[in-house]
Structure formats: structure tokens, C-alpha cells
């Protein structure tokens, strides 16, 4: 369409858009299948909530002027391309690290706003992998391709390098509220590096090897409510759990092709009752273990429908036990909920 024609049509549709501007925000994609795990008649533990391909799926509407702008100038590309890390904070903000698009999607439901961190045309970020947040509304994200950790001030909306160091290949990152330290997995040197928030390196955990406490390409991290650190020890096919000081507490899992075993584990997270969730990317499923490492359940099968996964990677569980899974090769994030013992009713998708 030629631009002049567009401008003419703009006047015509302005009227229609005016009417449409007050329409209700689009509802999230829901399912009419019962997506419960374990399947009925067993007691439901995990329920599917929604999938999101784009920020509009969480109910963030496009403003009137944004729609006008898009009509005239063309739509901005906001679709998730290849997600890895996910994080949801207490201000109802969902962060999705999109490795494929080299940016972070920020979906702020409190303020009904969507924006991105990193400009893929300018290549600000090369290979962003994971993201975490401290108490002062600073985001910390890792860029595996450049070895840099960035701090993003969510209030000022500024991206800066964190510290003045470069790591080999930082991937997983997690902030520990108990001791106020930032843990970063440096995959290529097989260590977890610990920083204080002033950018100084404080400690390194681990070395290369297969013994307990050693790593072989560690990737994702998660810090639970007690301040314990969970590390995905990817090529040793196990999750290792350390105290916040770096003392090994226990390991979970070994290699194998049966349920409860790992082949290529990626994201790790813990719910409000201490259950450990691990994304098993080659089996297209999320496996759940208890604190002692006993296998409890897995949910998700291979596919692209709701409740199906393709090589899931990142996972995060917020304080309300919503489980966010980066469904990487389905280009989306799926949300599930752990129904803890205190709540027996399921929830409806919003």
C-alpha cells in the first residue's frame, strides 16, 4: 500500500479505532482440554494455565496511539523467537530472555506496559541467556556471547555493564536475598562465580570434574527460599545443591533415559514447598523431585499443543507457585501452576 493511500484510510479507520480503543484487552489463550498432571482421577498437582507467544497474551493491551502508529508505520516485531531464561518478580513483571531475538521482553502487568531490553538491530546483546533481579529493582542479565553481565535499572530504564570484568561464558544467574550475593554460572570454566552487588568477585564454587561438588558445564542456577543454590550440572546430568557459602549439600539425578533420569537438563526451579523442578530438554518434559531427590512427577510431552513442549530450557516459579517454562522451540512461554496442599481448587486462566 502506498503511504498516501494509507493516510487516507487512516482518517476512515480513526473513527473505528476510537470505538475500539475501549474494548476489553484480549484474553489469554485458554484450553478446553483438561490439562492436569497427574491425569485424573489422581489428585491434581500441576495445572496448565496459559501460553504466551507475545505480550498481548498476558493481557497487556496496545494503546490507541500505538495501534495508530502501527497502522501507519507497520507493526513492531514483539513475538518471542527463542526463549531461554524467564523470571517473574513481585511487581507482576514477567521477563523473558529471547536468545533468538537477542533481547529481553518485559511484560509489566501492573503498569500494563510492554518494552524490550536490548536492540537486536544495534546488537546491544549478543547471546542473552538468563535474568534475575535484586530487591532494588535492578535486573541482572548474562550475555554468554560477550561474557558480560549487565545490570538494568528498571526504574530509570538504563542498561549498564555490571562490574568491569568479563567472564568466559556466563549463562545461569540468580540473586540470593539471604546473603545479598549474585551467583553466575560460568559454563566454559565449570564454575559458579559469586559477586557482591558492587561488582566485586567474592568466591568461586566448583571446578571441573565428575565428583560431587565438581561441575562439567554447569548452566542454570536457582536460589531457593533458604538461600540454597541449585546448579544444573548439565554434562554430569545432575542437579547439585549447595549452601549459600558454597558447601555441597546433596546431588539429585543421574544420566539415563527413563523417567526420573536426565539426558540434557537445563532450567531448575523450586516451588513454595521445596520441590525441585528441572526442564529436561531432550525428553521435552519438566521433572519434579522432592528435596531428597526422589522423583515425584513429570509433566509435558513432545509437541506444540497446550501442555506440550519442545526442548524446554528456562524455568521459574514465583511466590504464588506459578511455573513459567520457556518452551524454546515452540517459541513461547507456557505457564502452569503447582496446586499446593493449602489450595485444593484449581484456578481459571485470566
Amino acid at each position: 500500500m502506498k503511504t498516501t493511500l494509507r493516510i487516507k484510510l487512516l482518517y476512515l479507520t480513526l473513527f473505528l479505532l476510537l470505538l475500539n480503543a475501549c474494548a476489553t484487552t484480549p484474553s489469554a489463550k485458554t484450553s478446553n482440554r483438561e490439562l492436569l498432571w497427574p491425569p485424573l482421577p489422581l489428585e491434581t498437582r500441576i495445572q496448565w494455565v496459559m501460553e504466551l507467544n507475545d505480550y498481548q497474551d498476558v493481557g497487556i493491551g496496545k494503546g490507541f496511539w500505538q495501534r495508530v502508529g502501527e497502522f501507519v508505520f507497520g507493526e513492531e516485531e514483539s513475538r518471542i523467537r527463542k526463549p531461554y531464561g524467564v523470571y517473574h518478580d513481585d511487581h507482576d513483571r514477567l521477563f523473558v530472555v529471547d536468545v533468538g531475538a537477542s533481547l529481553i521482553h518485559v511484560m509489566d502487568r501492573e503498569k500494563n506496559e510492554y518494552y524490550t531490553i536490548g536492540d537486536h538491530k544495534k546488537n546491544t546483546l549478543r547471546t542473552p541467556i538468563a535474568v534475575t533481579e535484586d530487591e532494588k529493582e535492578n535486573l541482572y542479565l548474562t550475555d554468554a556471547g560477550t561474557g558480560v553481565i549487565y545490570r538494568y535499572d528498571l526504574v530509570k530504564r538504563e542498561l549498564k555493564q555490571f562490574g568491569s570484568f568479563k567472564l568466559e561464558r556466563p549463562t545461569g544467574i540468580a540473586y540470593n536475598r539471604v546473603n545479598k550475593l549474585l551467583y553466575v554460572a560460568d559454563t566454559a570454566v565449570h564454575q559458579v562465580v559469586v559477586f557482591s552487588l558492587d561488582g566485586m568477585e567474592r568466591m568461586r564454587i566448583g571446578s571441573r570434574g565428575e565428583k560431587p561438588g565438581q561441575f562439567n558445564y554447569p548452566t542454570d542456577l536457582f536460589v531457593n527460599a533458604r538461600g540454597e543454590l541449585l546448579v544444573t550440572d548439565a554434562l554430569n546430568a545432575r542437579i547439585q545443591i549447595f549452601s549459600s557459602a558454597g558447601v555441597l549439600l546433596r546431588t539429585v539425578g543421574t544420566v539415563g533415559d527413563a523417567p526420573g533420569f536426565f539426558d540434557k537438563p537445563k532450567g531448575v526451579a523450586v516451588d513454595s514447598e521445596g520441590h525441585i523442578y528441572v526442564c529436561e530438554s531432550l525428553f521435552d518434559t519438566v521433572q519434579i523431585f522432592d528435596e531428597k531427590g526422589r522423583f515425584l512427577l513429570n509433566f509435558g510431552t513432545t509437541g506444540s499443543e497446550e501442555g506440550e513442549l519442545r526442548m524446554p530450557s528456562g524455568i521459574f516459579i514465583d511466590s504464588n507457585d506459578y511455573i513459567y517454562v520457556a518452551d524454546t522451540y515452540n517459541k513461547r512461554v507456557q505457564v502452569f501452576k503447582y496446586l499446593n496442599h493449602k489450595s485444593t481448587k484449581g484456578i481459571k486462566a485470566e
Partner: peptide, 20 residues
């Protein structure tokens, strides 16, 4: 290869793991 040992604790009766 690993033989199917205990199986998942939360769903002992029904095998939800046909994906493997």
C-alpha cells in the same frame, strides 16, 4: 538405558511417561 525402577511417586498407578 535404564530400567524403569520406582516410577514417579505422585502417579504410581498410571504411567504418564510414555514420552520416553
Amino acid at each position: 538405558h535404564h530400567a524403569f525402577s520406582d516410577g514417579p511417586l505422585w502417579s504410581r498407578e498410571i504411567d504418564t511417561n510414555a514420552l520416553y
